[in-house]
Simulated assay, not measured.
Amino acid sequence: MRIRYMLLHAYGMGGTIRTVVSQANAMAALGHDVEIVSVIRRRDRPQFRLDRSVALSTLVDQREGVLTDSLGRKVWRRVRGKIVPYGEFAAAYFTERVEKAAIDYVSSLDEGILVTTRPALNLISARRAPSGVVRVAQEHMNLNAYPETLRREIVRHYGAFDAVSVLTGTDRRDYQRLLPDTPVVRIPNAVDRAGRVPSRQEHKVVVAAGRLVAQKGFDLLIPAFAAAARRHPGWRLRIFGTGPKKHELTALADRQGLGDRIALMGRSPRLHEELARASVYALSSRFEGLPMVMIEAMAHALPVAAFDCPTGPGDVLTDGIDGLLVPPEDVDALAEALGRLMAERETRVRLGSAAAVTAAEYDPEIVMPQWERLFAELLTGKPAGDGFRSAS
């Protein structure tokens, strides 16, 4: 099979990039002809390991800066028609030059499978890819997180896809209600458990990880941890990640008066080691797609305290079995859940052991054959099979 994955920035560090690279590597290892197309490029080297047989190409090289567009906005709208709506989270990346390059590339294809990986690229594929190309839209964020402007475009154009893939059962149901005549399949992202060292519950450390942005809710986690930590001396919170909220979160942590017990650690190339040395994982997001780092933490036998935000935590965790779920954005409830885990080592061990079992459901050996089967069916002209469409 000829499979092309289209990413906004294949050289970046995001969770979508990592999971798409892993999928491309797996398809290449199965003997398929695989290429990753990076719409823009701002680094010299990819941050995630690529299989040698996976081709990598770039449409717009921005390593020396973002160039001024040659087409004025009014001309662009009149002559080519701007596709990416303002409500798309990455809309600012799609200058006229970038959007034109993506449209021209997609329009030039004449065969194979094209997998696009965010709404902007999905809409370009839906509107410009020729009929001879099998089009698959991957959604890595939950539908209800998108503004109405973007949801309108999804309703208008996603019917052109041979399949729309989502990460959770909740999201599959939401998309199916919106797109009743379009095959919507649920295939989760894979988490490789190879080499994962389980936590020994020896260190009083709570770990969280993600971009330092409002979505991740670290402004809610810090006061929740502080409230619990005042009752449980010796516990520390380590937040891994970078982003525009760093200074704001640092100031918030300083105001808690807990010294160095709350630390913003920046990006770590050894996050797996940090997870193995921790005893609790905290997820404080306001919304998610499928929280991959949480599942990675579960693979280390870490118990999770999480907001039951849309979507993801509640699609993965069973409250009281392999983690603790609390109402979204309820700081007091999150503090109580963290405090319980800090106080009860037996509970941490019990929930963590069950979490490791749940994480096994996301092994590549289970997930990747689903992708290969889907692609094979679509290439033969079959609609996505019942096993995909009914998956919860």
Rank of each mutant, 00 (worst) to 15 (best):
R173E: 14
D174K: 10
Q176I: 08
Q176L: 09
Q176W: 01
L178F: 13
L178I: 15
L179K: 05
L179F: 09
L179H: 04
L179R: 05
P180L: 14
P180Y: 08
P180S: 10
D181C: 13
D181M: 13
D181A: 15
D181R: 14
T182I: 12
T182H: 06
T182M: 11
P183L: 12
P183R: 03
P183G: 10
P183M: 08
V184H: 02
V184S: 03
V185G: 03
V185K: 03
V185D: 04
R186N: 03
R186A: 11
R186V: 08
I187C: 10
I187E: 03
I187S: 01
P188Q: 08
P188L: 13
P188G: 12
N189S: 08
A190P: 04
A190C: 11
V191L: 13
D192M: 07
R193W: 09
A194W: 06
A194C: 09
A194D: 12
A194M: 11
G195S: 09
G195C: 10
R196A: 15
R196V: 14
R196Q: 10
R196G: 03
R196H: 15
V197T: 15
V197L: 14
V197D: 07
V197I: 15
P198N: 06
P198F: 11
S199G: 10
S199E: 09
S199D: 11
S199N: 09
S199M: 15
Q201L: 15
Q201R: 13
Q201I: 13
Q201P: 00
E202K: 09
E202N: 05
E202H: 06
E202Q: 14
H203W: 03
H203C: 11
H203V: 13
H203G: 01
V205L: 15
V205N: 01
V206G: 03
V206H: 00
V207K: 00
V207W: 01
V207P: 00
A208K: 04
A208Y: 02
A208F: 07
A208M: 09
A208P: 03
A208N: 05
A209C: 13
A209V: 06
A209L: 12
G210P: 00
R211W: 04
R211T: 11
R211H: 09
L212F: 06
V213K: 01
V213E: 04
V213N: 00
V213Q: 00
A214K: 14
A214Y: 14
Q215M: 14
Q215L: 11
Q215I: 07
K216R: 07
K216F: 00
K216Q: 07
K216D: 05
G217S: 12
G217C: 06
G217K: 01
F218D: 04
F218E: 02
D219M: 06
D219K: 03
L220V: 07
L220G: 12
L220K: 07
L221D: 00
L221I: 04
I222S: 02
I222H: 02
I222N: 03
I222R: 01
I222P: 00
P223A: 06
P223Y: 04
F225N: 01
